[in-house]
Design a binder for these strands. Structure first.
Length: 424
RNA sequence: GGAGAGAUGGCAGAGUGGUCGAAUGCGGCGGUCUUGAAAACCGUUGUACCGCGAGGUACCGGGGGUUCGAAUCCCUCUCUCUCCGCCA
């Protein structure tokens, strides 16, 4: 959510910058400014009416204490009209405030100046590509066939237990998952991230804080009985740790990492790239989150990108880093780098991480602030997060890229975590 | 699932109709003292919004009501805690 004062003070800038997100904000912004001006005027009137009311009430109290009942009762008569006015002011004010808010949440975050112009994923800028695309044998199998061949993942069994998109990992498949999680968490700890084990369900306030509610309500599993939502990413509970808090500037940045299962309904995406592990309703992910000083957040974004790059590089997967264009970047993000690994048998790039700086967009909603030494007024902090990493597509690429006639090799960095170096 | 208690500032905890944005203690910050520190003492210490400013308004879990006036009374919702039962 963009800050209201900022919109009020920089209307042209907002409209101009959002063009790069292919978003025409001119009408919304001008409506916001009109309404907000009315709102401020109304508050001035309401406040002075209230001030007068408070004053009279105090006087009445005084008169009663002095035993001047008649004067007190006379004073009461003056309040009726005031009271009515205040009621009307408040009702109008609340109505306008709600409208302003409704418009305000329609505005996406402003893109960083480095965000390329573009319509969709084809316009993303490949800023780096590393590793050889493996030349695969004719007989190379896609990961879902490898998973069946070596009894690693049972998709049909998942259908029996739950439904499509809830695979069952077993044997070395399960152990590989566990190894990856541990590897990612170990790397994050080494990089100074404090590990969190968050709840996998969150309340409405948390869903709202990170922006899943109300916009993306349909993407989350909702436990209606208790009005809780299964988390679509650990970003939600972890970032909400910092909801409604004022931090000390000297403690920034806060760095957290969390492994969690993630649940996504993926409503409306049936039939598209859903084969095997490409798109699931439940998957595992290690997330990294930082709460940063606004002056430092872009340096920190680079640091997080470097961290994720280290992970894919250590796993020996061919990867590329994309700077998302205005048409593909998310609503809440100012700048996003996606990581894709090449899945050799499917012969396509799979997104395995998305690292974003949200600047103050989430913090505004979260009321996440920090206080500079000696400065009275708290400032809005910046939030950043990234996948480090999402497991399923990493597993898909590992299986496909490391397949040999003898079996599937395990990358060296993982062997201490798996305890085996080959799946055969 | 049954029974009960509670929700007040960073924390603890008073306040049951007016002078309460709210006592007191702890913590934090500044100062005195000290070679330095501790102790002691003095002062200070919430957030948001409106206003050029002086200043004003709102907030004692959320919402509604009574009243000239509500942290305080009434209704309602949510959450937390304790005990019992069941259970990982």
């Amino acid at each position: 959510m963009l800050n209201l004062k900022f919109i009020q003070d920089n209307p042209e800038l907002v409209v101009e910058k959002l063009k790069r997100k292919n978003f025409d904000a001119s009408e919304i912004v001008s409506n916001i400014i009109d309404l907000n001006t009315k709102k401020n005027k109304l508050q001035g009137e309401a406040d002075s009416a209230k001030a007068e009311m408070n004053k009279i009430s105090k006087e009445i109290g005084m008169l009663f204490r002095e035993g001047k009942h008649e004067e007190a009762n006379a004073a009461k008569e003056r309040t009726a009209e005031l009271k009515e006015n205040i009621k009307n002011f408040d009702a109008d004010f609340a109505a306008i405030e709600e409208k302003v808010y409704e418009l305000q949440v329609l505005l996406p975050n402003l893109p960083h100046e480095s965000v390329p112009v573009g319509k969709g994923e084809d316009d993303n800028e490949v800023i780096k590509q590393v590793g050889e695309i493996p030349a695969m044998d004719e007989k190379a199998l896609p990961h879902w066939e490898l998973a069946a061949k070596y009894n690693l993942i049972d998709f049909e069994l998942g259908v029996k237990l739950t439904g499509a998109g809830f695979p069952v990992y077993r044997g070395k498949g399960a152990q590989l998952q566990r190894a990856l999680i541990n590897f990612f968490l170990a790397e994050a700890s080494k990089a100074g991230y404090e590990e969190i084990q968050p709840p996998l369900a969150v309340n409405e306030a948390s869903g709202f804080g990170t922006g899943q509610l109300p916009d993306k309500e349909g993407q989350m599993y909702h436990i209606t009985e208790d009005n809780l939502y299964l988390i679509p990413t650990a970003e939600v509970p972890v970032t909400n740790i910092y909801r409604d808090v004022i931090l000390d500037a000297k403690d920034l940045p806060y760095k957290n990492t969390a492994y969690s299962a993630c649940f996504r309904r993926e409503a409306g995406s049936y039939g598209k790239d859903v084969r095997g592990l490409n798109r699931l309703h439940q998957f595992d992910k290690v997330e990294i989150v930082q709460i940063a000083h606004p002056d430092k957040s872009y340096g920190i974004l680079d640091e997080m990108v470097a961290h994720v790059e280290g992970l894919v590089a250590k796993l020996g997967l061919p990867y590329r880093i994309l700077r998302l264009c205005g048409g593909d970047i998310s609503f809440a993000s100012a700048l996003t780098f996606d990581f894709e690994v090449f899945s050799a048998a499917q012969e396509k790039w799979l997104e395995v991480s998305s690292v974003s700086n949200f600047e103050s967009f989430q913090s505004n909603r979260l009321k996440l602030r920090f206080r500079e030494e000696g400065v009275k007024k708290p400032q809005i902090a910046h939030t950043l997060n990234g996948s480090a990493l999402a497991l399923p597509r990493i597993v898909a690429a590992l299986l496909e890229n490391y397949q040999t006639p003898e079996g599937i090799k395990i990358p060296e960095v993982l062997v201490p975590f798996t305890g085996f170096d080959m799946i055969s």
